[in-house]
Computed example of a mutant assay.
Amino acid sequence: MIDPCVTLKAAFVALACSYATFSAAQEAESAPVDIPSDAPDVLSEDPQVLLDMLASEADPAEADRLANEVLERWSRSGSPTIDVLMRRAADAMSREDWSRAIAHLTAATDHAPGFAEAWNKRAEAFFMAEETGMALADIEQTLILEPRHFGALAGLGIILEQLGEDRAALNAFRRAQEIYPAEQNVSGAVERLEAVTGGRTL
């Protein structure tokens, strides 16, 4: 659950970390995952099938694995050039060099406007740089390209709550919760905002 005493910016970082950043880890060797022998072969599934599975998965550990599989697929640009830009942006974000990250991600969105994850990561960088309007515009574009992007929806909820739009924020968090119901940060945000708004959305 997101602690209401924690700043929204810190909550945004916590959510981003909980969803993991794959672009910075693509060059590192991945540790083997212990998957039961009777587990479904999700490696052969596309993101939409995985998202369907995620929406009905109640076990937190399995839901986390499915979410990470989705994120891994969303991180695949299909272009070595875009992959380099995404890694450079991730490195800049790890140093809190938001302007450099935004520059790399702008190059990525210019060269691959259909790659949703570049827009999503630039939204994060804009938010951290306190460019809220630009962050919202990039979240909108992310959701046009990938309507079930649970990270973008959670980020939208956090920004709307920061702007005092509690009902709209609750709506965004509920949409994220429908896609990824086992995510505790989002569930906590829904509970908190339901108490504030009486459960009413727009």
Rank of each mutant, 00 (worst) to 15 (best):
T132I: 15
Q26S: 11
A125G: 04
V196F: 09
L153Q: 07
A189Q: 13
A58L: 09
V70G: 01
A58T: 15
N68A: 09
R167Y: 03
R65Y: 08
S30C: 04
I82K: 02
L50R: 02
S75I: 01
M128K: 03
G133Q: 12
A55W: 07
D83S: 03
A28W: 09
G157N: 14
R73D: 10
M128H: 09
S75G: 13
I139F: 00
D52G: 10
A195D: 10
L145V: 13
S79L: 05
A20Y: 11
D46K: 00
Y180M: 00
D59G: 08
A103Y: 10
I35S: 02
R100C: 07
G164L: 13
A137T: 14
P36D: 06
N68S: 14
M53E: 09
G198E: 06
A176L: 08
D59V: 02
E69C: 13
G188M: 09
C17E: 14
F12K: 06
V49Q: 11
V13E: 11
D46F: 00
D110C: 11
H111Q: 12
D52K: 14
N171S: 11
C17G: 08
R65E: 04
H104G: 00
R148S: 06
I139S: 01
A152R: 02
T21I: 04
F12W: 01
T7P: 07
S23L: 02
T142G: 04
A129V: 10
Q177H: 12
A195E: 13
H111I: 08
F150M: 05
V6Q: 14
A129Q: 12
F12E: 03
R167A: 11
S18E: 15
L145M: 07
C17D: 15
P181Y: 09
I159L: 10
T7Q: 14
H111S: 10
K9I: 13
A31G: 07
A28N: 10
A129Y: 00
A89R: 05
L193F: 07
V190K: 05
L170T: 02
A103K: 08
K121P: 00
C17K: 05
Q26I: 06
I159H: 04
P147Q: 03
Q141S: 10
P47L: 00
A112E: 05
T197H: 09
T109D: 03
N120M: 06
M134G: 04
A125E: 11
A195S: 13
L8F: 05
N120L: 13
E62G: 02
M128L: 11
A63P: 00
I179C: 09
A182N: 04
A135N: 10
L51V: 10
L153H: 03
A118T: 12
E161F: 02
A63K: 00
V49G: 00
H104C: 08
Y19K: 01
L160R: 14
F126K: 04
E131T: 06
C5P: 05
E178I: 03
E124D: 06
F12D: 02
E165T: 02
T142L: 06
L15D: 08
E72V: 00
E194C: 11
E57F: 04
T21M: 10
E191S: 12
F127A: 14
A20S: 12
N68T: 13
P47F: 06
R148C: 08
T142P: 11
L15C: 09
V186R: 03
P113T: 07
G133T: 12
P40R: 14
L43W: 12
A154S: 15
G155L: 01
R192I: 01
D46R: 02
A61K: 14
S75V: 00
